[in-house]
């Protein structure tokens, strides 16, 4: 079982927003949902290599900033063309004011 990694402070991300997290040569996106839950996916859109953290979170959807491809960030499922390939997701949680993710 891989370790929990300290990614950022909970205060770094507003509700219904996303932040970029780079680790081990890879980039991830960490989401805080409107109801305060935490999620983590691959950081780059599966259509082209664009950082999803520059996109817009609407409810449980992340919209890619380039062509408005959309993913459900809870499951990584691709929801709107031009994205067709799902994102990988990773466990995430908040503890003591920090956001922890289980990647790798």
């Amino acid at each position: 079982m891989s370790q929990w990694i300290d990614a950022c402070a909970t205060d770094d991300v507003e509700e219904e927003d996303v932040i970029r997290f780079d680790h081990g040569g890879k980039t991830f996106a960490i989401y805080r949902s409107p109801d305060g839950q935490w999620f983590c996916t691959d950081g780059l859109c599966s259509h082209e290599q664009v950082h999803l953290a520059d996109g817009l979170v609407i409810d449980y959807m992340i919209e890619c900033p380039k062509h408005n491809g959309q993913f459900d960030y809870r499951t990584g499922e691709a929801k709107r063309a031009p994205v067709c390939i799902n994102l990988a997701t990773y466990p995430a949680k908040a503890e003591g004011g920090r956001v922890l993710v289980q990647i790798g």
Binding site: H47, E48, K66, H67, A81, P82
Partner: peptide, 10 residues
Amino acid sequence: WRWSHARHHT
């Protein structure tokens, strides 16, 4: 054209 326009932006 949805795909064509995506390419125009890329």
